[in-house]
Design a binder for these strands. Structure first.
Lengths: 332, 332
DNA sequence: TTGAAAGCGCTAACAT
DNA sequence: ATGTTAGCGCTTTCAA
């Protein structure tokens, strides 16, 4: 029923090797033969079986993508970058959500490897030691996208989160604030708990502003968490006059909460975000924010993976992309 | 180097058939043998090669997912529903973006079929006749998620878009508006150009409100398009006092534009949306909206696909899920 | 309960 | 330039 390379060979009066050659664009085929074979392929609607091909060649031209949650815009944006470049290099993608669960990540990696992917791009907000171990012992290359392996052993693509966060907090400091809150996503995520937090503290210290632990509130990165954080911060003595938000949702929530409390943004209170998704322009006032090049991170990660899969030279396994500060109207 | 079923067989002093049986949970294996084999599998870290398995069994336990754009939250939400159910039934997903291009869709379908997927879930805002044709001639089942095939030949999961749109427009009518705009996404998308539009017209007609074509403005579904639409509508004679927006982004833009023009929402002008994403609660006032059960549509579509792949009885190939109206504060 | 053996559809030497 | 053939790692009859 399904037509195989053998059927084509018979119909075209050539061997299957020849058919295989024309299908794979091998130049060692007389134009006339090629033409004949191509015709038969067309007539029979022959479609090469990639599974058989994969078994014989040990290459599947598919890569695995492990993502925390595809319905989260941050990751979706990364995924788009990954997929675009994958397509460009003729790879397909097996995409699975890990929900940031370590056991799920490990399990996914295992099933992807059993499916013989040629490589994998992984996103994980906390690269545990077992994941690091799994990456090291993987038979195919794995690159981290927007995820940091503190040991820097794995190939990865990121921005300089510390530097970016420092800049953000500095905007607030420069504008004269002394009471600056850090409303963050989960602190057990490396980017938050290590880089942003350290940058926040350092920036304050460099400006001789005393650190007040009460001004650091971490939850999830959702709108509701932002609202809750505002409430929580409202009861501390000398409440914050400025907020460094870990995400756009958090920032928007902070703005709305402030406005509901009768504050003017940015006149009474300023907010700076760390993301710059399309949401940033969908609030009034529009968000000032560190701009994360999410799509690019995904794209570069996939590109890096193709290089490694092809055993090309790569001078730097841990690439750091540039970021920038997008000043709009939630800061003065 | 990589350990095969043969290595395991040798080490365990059984035939590969037996190893295959224990790997596949076949009951015809003596417990003692099973135990022995399992031990060897563990010791050798044997990982079955899914590609070889796929070739031999003609099943890959992977399904294709063709999506317009994963970075668009609507589709990302659908994708999450699909993936969750796929995981539940032990399928993996090959995910590709079509950008709503017909040739891309066809091409993706072709490569997915060549990769021997067991089925595919497809999202497409306009199911062209060549796609319909491709679906019909596909060797594996294909189900449409949140996408309508007007001929109703393909399996699909949707809500009743006409009914939903009718309800939305009716809210505005009930609130006394006579000048109701329809700010839509692309009208060549079936849901917009056929269902919503027809419902809009019918609702007006049923309320004896004269249709004014000028009040129908279609563009893309982005924030900027919403802003542009507001501007455009501002210059018509007797500008609209209420807006039926095709998406949350459009709705938010409309609200902001109205507010910038000095209007109070919902007192001066009302807006109702058609989506109800998390964005709906991230504006002030919060959006009244038709709630699309995106995740469920994806989940049910995948569930339907598993049934068809298993050749189970399905009484209805075109399932219609319930929707509801979420009234918040952008309408009175 | 277990094993032997024939494929699954293709690639990749190796010959010619 | 083309053909022959031996796998790739597994599933699945069919026998035993």
């Amino acid at each position: 029923m399904t037509v195989t390379i053998y059927d084509v060979a018979r119909e075209a009066n050539v061997s299957m090797a020849t058919v295989s050659r024309v299908v794979n664009g091998n130049q060692n085929v007389k134009p006339a033969t090629r033409k004949k074979v191509l015709e038969v392929i067309e007539r029979l609607e022959y479609r090469p079986n990639a599974v058989a091909r994969g078994l014989a060649s040990k290459k599947t031209t598919t890569v695995g993508v492990i993502i925390p949650d595809i319905s989260n815009t941050i990751y979706a944006e990364l995924a788009r970058g990954i997929e675009d470049i994958a397509t460009m290099y003729s790879y397909n993608i097996i995409l699975s959500n890990s929900d940031q669960k370590e056991d799920k990540e490990l399990e996914l990696l295992d099933t992807m490897l059993s499916k013989q992917v040629d490589g994998v791009v992984m996103m994980s907000d906390k690269v545990s030691s077992s994941i690091q171990q799994a990456i090291k012992s993987s038979p195919v290359p794995i690159v981290l996208a927007g995820s940091v392996d503190e040991k820097k052993e794995a190939a990865s693509v990121n921005i300089d989160y510390y530097e970016a966060a420092y800049e953000a907090v500095n905007v607030l400091i420069k504008n004269g604030h002394k009471r600056i809150a850090f409303v963050s996503g989960p602190l057990d995520y490396t980017i938050n708990g290590v880089y942003k937090l350290a940058a926040y503290k350092q920036a304050l210290q460099d400006a001789d502003i005393e650190l007040d632990e009460q001004l650091i509130v971490a939850g999830d990165s959702t709108y509701d968490d932002g609202i809750a954080a505002y409430e929580e911060l409202t009861v501390v003595q000398a409440p914050p006059t400025a907020y460094f938000a870990g995400s756009d949702e958090l920032a928007i929530a902070l703005i709305h909460a402030a406005q509901d409390a009768g504050k003017q943004v940015p006149n009474d209170t300023e907010v700076i975000s760390f993301e710059n998704s399309k949401l940033a322009r969908m609030v009034r006032p529009q968000l000032s924010s560190i701009a994360l090049p999410l799509y690019d991170i995904g794209a570069v990660a996939m590109r890096l993976l193709t290089k490694i899969m092809n055993k090309e030279e790569v001078q730097e396994q841990t690439v750091v992309l540039p970021h920038h500060l997008e000043i709009r109207h939630s800061t003065k």
